[in-house]
Simulated assay, not measured.
Amino acid sequence: MMILVAGPYRSGTGDDPARIQANVDAMTDTALALFRAGHLPVLGEWYALPLVERAGSTGIGDAVFDEIFHPIARRLVAKCDGVLRIGGRSAGADDMVATARAHGKRVFHALDEIPSAA
């Protein structure tokens, strides 16, 4: 299955780059586990951040960032088989879960909930 990993990005970080990176690392670690289980993991950040930079964003939460960051993840969810929600509070990750449900996609809350790819 192609599964979007949805977790906090900015939430609880105060926009501190090291704390944001820790959130991305947690999502990436989960993506690696999904890959090793035979699935195709994706993160919205993998798609959005290069485009945000190319489009000229000057900082997290500016108009260019907001134009691309969550909208691209919503489009990605529509193409996925499901969403794996990880981590703590996050309006954005909760939005990805709601988007998945609106598209009739599966929502998981732990790796062990995901069927084997075998």
Score class of each variant (00 low, 15 high):
residue 1 M to H: 05
residue 1 M to C: 08
residue 3 I to T: 06
residue 4 L to C: 15
residue 5 V to Y: 01
residue 6 A to E: 04
residue 6 A to G: 12
residue 7 G to I: 02
residue 7 G to W: 02
residue 8 P to S: 07
residue 9 Y to I: 14
residue 10 R to N: 06
residue 10 R to Y: 00
residue 12 G to W: 08
residue 12 G to Q: 10
residue 14 G to K: 07
residue 15 D to R: 15
residue 17 P to E: 08
residue 18 A to R: 15
residue 18 A to K: 15
residue 19 R to W: 00
residue 20 I to Y: 10
residue 20 I to W: 12
residue 21 Q to A: 09
residue 21 Q to K: 11
residue 21 Q to Y: 04
residue 22 A to C: 03
residue 23 N to G: 10
residue 24 V to T: 07
residue 25 D to Y: 03
residue 25 D to K: 15
residue 27 M to C: 11
residue 27 M to S: 01
residue 27 M to V: 03
residue 28 T to G: 11
residue 30 T to I: 08
residue 32 L to Q: 03
residue 32 L to C: 06
residue 34 L to M: 11
residue 34 L to N: 11
residue 35 F to C: 14
residue 35 F to H: 14
residue 37 A to C: 02
residue 37 A to Q: 14
residue 37 A to K: 15
residue 38 G to I: 11
residue 39 H to P: 00
residue 40 L to I: 13
residue 42 V to E: 01
residue 43 L to T: 04
residue 43 L to V: 00
residue 44 G to K: 09
residue 44 G to P: 02
residue 44 G to M: 08
residue 45 E to T: 11
residue 46 W to E: 06
residue 46 W to A: 13
residue 46 W to I: 11
residue 47 Y to W: 09
residue 47 Y to T: 02
residue 48 A to T: 04
residue 48 A to C: 06
residue 49 L to H: 09
residue 49 L to M: 09
residue 50 P to H: 13
residue 51 L to N: 14
residue 51 L to T: 12
residue 51 L to P: 08
residue 53 E to C: 01
residue 53 E to R: 13
residue 53 E to V: 11
residue 54 R to N: 04
residue 56 G to P: 06
residue 56 G to K: 11
residue 57 S to V: 10
residue 59 G to K: 10
residue 62 D to K: 15
residue 63 A to S: 14
residue 63 A to I: 01
residue 64 V to C: 04
residue 65 F to L: 05
residue 66 D to P: 05
residue 67 E to T: 13
residue 67 E to I: 04
residue 67 E to N: 05
residue 68 I to L: 14
residue 68 I to R: 13
residue 69 F to L: 00
residue 70 H to S: 13
residue 70 H to Q: 11
residue 70 H to M: 10
residue 71 P to I: 12
residue 72 I to K: 07
residue 73 A to K: 03
residue 73 A to I: 10
residue 74 R to Q: 00
residue 75 R to N: 13
residue 75 R to P: 02
residue 75 R to I: 10
residue 75 R to M: 13
residue 76 L to G: 07
residue 77 V to W: 10
residue 77 V to T: 02
residue 77 V to Q: 05
residue 79 K to S: 13
residue 79 K to M: 15
residue 79 K to H: 15
residue 80 C to I: 11
residue 81 D to R: 13
residue 81 D to F: 06
residue 82 G to T: 09
residue 82 G to W: 05
residue 82 G to E: 06
residue 85 R to Q: 01
residue 86 I to G: 10
residue 86 I to E: 05
residue 86 I to Q: 08
residue 87 G to V: 01
residue 88 G to H: 09
residue 90 S to G: 04
residue 90 S to H: 00
residue 91 A to M: 01
residue 92 G to C: 02
residue 93 A to H: 09
residue 94 D to Q: 05
residue 95 D to G: 10
residue 95 D to E: 12
residue 99 T to C: 15
residue 100 A to T: 05
residue 102 A to P: 08
residue 102 A to K: 08
residue 102 A to I: 08
residue 103 H to E: 13
residue 104 G to E: 03
residue 109 H to V: 02
residue 110 A to D: 07
residue 110 A to Y: 05
residue 111 L to V: 01
residue 113 E to P: 09
residue 114 I to K: 10
residue 115 P to S: 03
residue 115 P to G: 05
residue 116 S to C: 12
residue 116 S to H: 07
residue 116 S to K: 14
residue 116 S to V: 12
residue 118 A to W: 06
